[in-house]
Every structure is written in C-alpha cells, then in structure tokens.
C-alpha cells in the first residue's frame, strides 16, 4: 500500500473522455484528485511508448481513455488503439510488470459518472500496488 497519494497520468481523448471529465466536474461529482490529465486528439494518438515513459519518469499509474467503439471522431482510431493496447497489456504482463499500473477505458462525453468511477477504480488499484520499482529510472 502506498502511503503517499499516487500520481496517475490520464491520456484523455478530446472528443469524449476529456469532455466526460469536464462533465464530472460541472456536475460536481467527487472523484480522487490523483489524475493529471493530458488531452490528446484521439486514443489512437497514444503511443504505447508514452505510457511506458510515464511509468519510467515517476507516474504510479497510467490511464488511457477514449471514445466507445464505433464512436471515434476519426472513425477507427480507438479500434486501432485497442489492438496496440492489447499487445502492450500482454507484453507488460509477460515481462512481470504489475497488471494494475496501466488501464484503458471507454468513456463518452455524456458519462461524467462513469469517468468518476473509472478514476476511483484506477486510483484504488494503483494505491494497492504500492511504490513502483520496476520501470522507474
């Protein structure tokens, strides 16, 4: 268990999850303040290397969130991202890096509630994993 509050980098798609986070805010929905949001044009923009770099440079966890399948502003960005993320997930697991450090979610612009839930869940998982040691520089 981590004594400090974990830092979680969240890559949020501009067209959905970012707006979802905004909605959670305007709707005054409470969620843990652990996420540091980076707005990206699409979940397909997130290079797995960016995720790894975050973990290396001190993030306790990473969340990538995009539009639901079928809803991507660029039609297939999230479908293509899903393949990359599935492989990254598999690679990290095989390598022996804790499963719970990296998370993916689909959150639409209308799902403020879901965004808050995702952040809660991710924060708890990351907290439970304790101090990251494996990739940190």
């Amino acid at each position: 268990m981590l004594d400090q509050e974990p830092k979680i980098v969240a890559f949020l798609c501009n067209w959905c999850s970012y707006a979802g986070a905004d909605l959670a805010g305007t709707g005054r929905i409470q969620y843990p303040p652990n996420v540091r949001v980076i707005r990206v044009p699409c979940s397909g923009r997130v290079d797995p290397l960016m995720i790894l770099k975050c973990l290396q440079r001190g993030a306790d966890g990473v969340l990538v969130s995009g539009c639901h399948p079928g809803d991507c502003h660029y039609i297939a960005g999230n479908y293509l991202a899903r393949r990359k993320f599935a492989l990254l997930d598999e690679l990290l697991d095989f390598y022996g890096i804790e499963k719970g450090r990296v998370h993916f979610s689909w959150v639409s612009a209308a799902e403020g509630e879901k965004f808050a839930d995702v952040v809660k869940q991710v924060t708890e998982t990351v907290k439970a994993l304790g101090e990251p040691a494996k990739l940190v520089r």
Binding site: P69, L80, R82, R83, A86, H103
Partner: peptide, 30 residues
C-alpha cells in the same frame, strides 16, 4: 492468440496493427 494473425504470410493482407475487427478482444478495457 488475440487476433489469429501470423505475420509475413500473405502478400495481399494488411499488417496486424493497420487494421481491426469490431470483435477484437475488449475485456481488458474498463
């Protein structure tokens, strides 16, 4: 296992990460 894809066999194919199927594995996504 995940995509039933073997690389370098089909000159008429599409690279694994340049395409997708709707029914690709999704269970790891929140």
């Amino acid at each position: 296992d995940l995509f039933d894809y073997e690389s370098g066999l089909d000159i008429g194919g599409v690279p694994l990460l340049a395409t997708y199927r709707r029914e690709d594995p999704d269970d790891f996504i929140l």
